[in-house]
């Protein structure tokens, strides 16, 4: 018996006349790091957006912990599920630490001051995400990759049970990517966090995921263990490339296929 945190049934969505997701069915297992992979325009981001309620589905059912996700209040949902998008930005000069503190919002009443415990959590998360050293800098003064780390810190301060990432790390350098992916993987293994991440870095997805959901042209191509799913046919059929697979280590992309 799988212990699933989220169930997606017959999910359909289209922009106007062009269908983006067709009859998607899957279960997200609790306490797993799951990567969502697929080429551009295959419907990955749309799926993330449908799950976190930015888009409204045409058809289908999404249940979170057995409850229809539309029936969960915004505030309660924010305590359970959060999402990090790619290239976040804010036109207004908030300090980084103020931005991270915004993550406490669903856990605080309106005029409650931030407690010492909460500040400790903020500090802790900012050390882990390597953002504490520029905590009082403004979000308009730091680089895109640094800002993504601040946004990740904000999401972690929110203490979600289910974290969605939509290419959240694509602006970060290789070192930061590996450090943060390891950190998140640790939270998955030790604290039972569930992660669903859209990832274009297939090597990272392969190394750190417990499960891969491969999606192609709006339909699920395959679900399962990375070793099983990420084989030569996947690269040929879904990504249209020829790849050298080094078992247990990763891939080397050789050439495209037309």
């Amino acid at each position: 018996m799988r212990d699933s945190i989220m169930k997606i049934e017959n999910l359909n969505f289209s922009y106007g006349d062009s269908p983006v997701l067709i009859d998607v069915n899957c279960e997200i297992e609790r306490g797993k790091f799951i990567s969502l992979i697929g080429p551009n325009g295959s419907g990955k981001s749309t799926m993330i957006r449908l799950i976190c309620g930015i888009l409204e589905k045409d058809q289908g059912n999404i249940t979170y912990k057995g409850q229809n996700i539309d029936d969960i209040s915004i505030r309660h949902r924010a305590k359970e599920i959060t999402v990090i998008h790619q290239r976040e930005k804010n036109e207004f000069p908030f300090s980084c630490i103020d931005t991270v503190i915004m993550g406490l919002h669903p856990h605080r009443n309106r005029f409650e001051p931030v407690t010492e415990d909460q500040l400790c959590l903020v500090k802790d998360v900012m050390i882990k995400t390597n953002t504490l050293q520029f905590a009082s800098k403004l979000t308009t003064e730091i680089s895109g990759g640094e800002l993504q780390r601040v946004i990740l810190a904000r999401a972690l301060v929110q203490q979600p049970k289910f974290l969605l990432m939509d290419e959240a790390m694509s602006d970060m350098d290789v070192n930061a990517k590996i450090i943060l992916t390891k950190m998140i993987k640790e939270m998955v293994d030790e604290k039972g966090l569930t992660v669903l991440a859209v990832n274009h870095d297939l090597n990272l997805a392969y190394r750190f995921s417990d499960e891969i959901i491969a999606i192609n042209e709006g339909e699920i191509y395959d679900i399962g263990n990375p070793n099983k799913v990420m084989d030569e046919t996947l690269f040929e059929k879904v990504f249209r490339v020829k790849a050298d697979i080094i078992k247990g280590k990763g891939f080397f992309i050789l050439d495209n296929i037309n």
Partner: peptide, 23 residues
């Protein structure tokens, strides 16, 4: 002033604000 915290979070964009629990 009363809803100022929500307004702060709204500057991060409507979608982000909703995932942070703002109506």
């Amino acid at each position: 002033y009363y809803f100022a915290n929500d307004l702060n979070i709204m500057t991060a964009g409507e979608n982000n604000a909703r995932t942070l629990g703002v109506n």
